[in-house]
């Protein structure tokens, strides 16, 4: 099941050229670009790891792509990588754009939906990524 998170997620994955143009747009707006990776695809997982520092002082998108490719060398086969752009200007101080730039090479197994029946035929739903049944680092290998 193909994970959809962040912007553009219902489009085919962006090519590097398309990523470059999005990044240049972020840089030109003065946003700091960050790279993060994880192998826990749950949509409520806020604990993605950062790759390096936020890139505040990169003038050209090639600098970010360079770092993305470094990150892919290490995590590209087994992890999701996302790119996010943070607008630090007063009043915003939040992420303006975030999208997936890398998927694990192994199949994306998707989610198991758990229904718990409660009182009065109430049902509570929980989702578990199949991937997270394995320990971190072994999920997509």
């Amino acid at each position: 099941m193909r994970i959809t998170q962040g912007a553009f997620s219902f489009l085919p994955d962006l090519t590097d050229e398309q990523i470059t143009r999005q990044v240049q747009y972020c840089i030109d707006n003065g946003w700091a670009v960050n790279l993060e990776f994880t192998d826990d695809p749950h949509p409520r997982n806020t604990y993605w790891d950062m790759w390096g520092h936020p890139m505040f002082d990169v003038a050209d998108a090639a600098g970010v792509l360079y770092e993305l490719n470094e990150c892919r060398k290490v995590y590209g086969d087994s992890h999701y990588i996302r790119l996010s752009a943070f607008d630090a200007s007063h009043g915003w101080e939040s992420v303006k754009l975030s999208f997936i730039v890398n998927r694990p090479k192994a199949e994306e197994a998707g989610f198991w939906l758990q229904r718990s029946e409660g009182q009065g035929r109430n049902i509570r739903y929980t989702t578990h990524p199949y991937a997270t049944r394995k320990p971190e680092g072994e999920r997509y290998t």
């Binding site: 002082d57 998108a61 600098g63 360079y66 770092e67 470094e70």
Partner: peptide, 14 residues
């Protein structure tokens, strides 16, 4: 390596 790469990133496009 991180220091050199930091500088390279900054200089890219220039």
């Amino acid at each position: 390596a991180p220091k050199t790469k930091e500088i390279l990133k900054k200089a890219m496009g220039g």
